[in-house]
Amino acid sequence: MIKFENVSLRFGELVICENLSFDLDQGGSLCLSGPSGKGKSSLLKLILGIIKPDSGKIFIDGKELNATNIFDARKKIVWLPQNIHLPVNSGKELTELLDFQSENLELYHHYLDQLGIASNGKEKLFTEVSGGQKQRMVMAACLSLDKPILLLDEPVSALDDDSIDQFIHVINGLKGKTIVSTSHNKRWIEQCSSIIKL
């Protein structure tokens, strides 16, 4: 599903990866782990075509990423960046911003339940909920897009232990999704099927 073939990337002196190769099958989960500033998020951005590699090839669903198919490739991907500031004040506004259709909305409410957002919390403004709750609402919105590839940048960084367990439970319940994530969190790393240490 996602394949790197001798991919190299550097920012000036900082080497993010040198001839990195891996092949992640559909349904697999890969965690990119390592200290801050090593370029874990940049590797996710390579998959998204936001950053181009200095050399090497990246394949999504068997097709090499290029200007012709990048937009089709992105249609298969959900990206949850770390600490994003969204120009919305509530979950409802977020669903409008992401242009949710009725099937997405149904899934959104399903994932909110699964992630422990009580029904009275769904209508609350982001200013009235904690950082962790807001992150779970954004996660629920991302999962509701129901795309086959999930790119999750530090998905559990703002969650407490119970919420991490809940999130891992939800992620494990997703069938056939290919997941690439970055994390420092031991529990999150342990449940991934493969790890790359940077």
Binding site: K45, W79, L86, D99, C142
Partner: peptide, 11 residues
């Protein structure tokens, strides 16, 4: 990041 978030996750 906001632009890319909306580009990739939006329509």
């Amino acid at each position: 990041d906001l632009y890319y978030f909306l580009l990739i996750n939006g329509s």
